[in-house]
Design a protein around this nucleic acid. Structure first.
Lengths: 191, 191
DNA sequence: CGTCTATTTGAATGTACTCAAAAGCGGTGG
DNA sequence: CCACCGCTTTTGAGTACATTCAAATAGACG
């Protein structure tokens, strides 16, 4: 199991000593997901927090008419899950799908809680992770409310160039809240 | 200074002993905001995290054309600030305005950091606060993407009945991402 | 090379917007 | 207590932007 990336990810914010690192890595397990298959489906228990070692994931939900809305993407070095349902141990509201084949590490809710209790630095790390996630989501909301669709697309490819290269346009459209047709025509008009 | 509400707010998630409570309350200061005045304006340093003792606040930002977008509301027993700019000590991107006259408690960034470092339970509290804020914001985003405008309004008044009673319709419209005119006509069509 | 999916293009439609004006409502002062 | 003023909400007409649906083209993958 490759834990280099996850340890380096955590070390960007807090310092774990060797023992704490062993405690963490001992709680992780790895999973492979083939392209276009699901790691999690709506309604299933949301048991794990995932860390992406390689590949690209997408979280999406379906509305009453079956329309997909992309909630978030997860690329290498990102954390992903249905956070609300994970933290409250509720059935998932989202699908987690591999856009390309992935290697992920996963951490169960009970194991997360052990870490949060026993390793103060990990508690701090997770706080920082949530701070950043909150601010990012709030900024996304503000941009969705205040700037027109096409500028949001330009914004997106500038902010997430790696994701923009790795996922089909239609998923970006559903992340931005527009149809793929609209995004396609808007794009051809502007460049 | 009335610290009952804030201590009870925190005690919903973690337990602070008497000394920790004194440490916290010693770092707070209070401020009154008159109706329609600003606690913070775009571009000003975002120095404080606010806890609302009484009254109603609104965070909003202006886009390039001067259109207001309501980022969040803050009613009694809520925490509010421009979190991204506060945590990164950047000039504020939002305005914080009193919808009705308010009494707030405020905590500076440096003092927050002392608390996070010195009081593990407060670190945990703040983590939980950020978890909930993230999940709430993500759910808002999902709903904005996946359900039509009028249903979002019904959703809102069901989820936040207190806010719905305390703020003008136009602010709710700008929170939901529609015009007041649209919300007004939609409302009259459905009930 | 053929199949499947993604993207592009276009026409018709609809939803939500802008702009303008009227009505409602609350607070203030005469 | 009523009249006036300012702000919010409502109403309506015309418009723009993004959608749906359908079909053609392009790309990716086995």
């Amino acid at each position: 199991m490759n834990t280099d990336l996850i340890l380096s990810n955590i070390s960007k914010h807090v310092t774990l000593n060797a023992e704490e690192q062993r405690l963490l890595t001992g709680l992780l397990s790895e999973e492979s997901v083939k392209k276009n298959t699901h790691l999690l489906r709506e309604g299933e228990p949301c048991q794990y927090l995932y860390f992406v070692n390689s590949g690209t994931l997408r979280a999406y939900c379906l509305n009453a008419h079956g329309k997909e809305s992309t909630v978030m993407f997860g690329i290498s070095d990102w954390w992903i899950t249905d956070m609300h349902c994970y933290l409250n141990q509720l059935p998932s509201m989202v699908y987690l799908q591999a856009v390309s084949s992935c290697e992920v590490l996963k951490l169960s809710f009970d194991d997360l809680n052990s870490l949060l209790e026993e390793v103060p630095a990990f508690n701090t790390f997770f706080r920082i992770l949530m701070q950043k996630a909150y601010c990012r989501e709030q900024l996304r909301m503000i941009e969705n409310l205040s700037i027109p669709a096409f500028n949001r697309y330009e914004n997106f490819i500038q902010k997430y160039p790696l994701i923009a290269r790795q996922v089909p346009l239609k998923h970006i459209a559903s992340y931005l809240g527009v149809t793929p047709e609209f995004l396609s025509t808007a794009r051809s008009r502007k460049d």
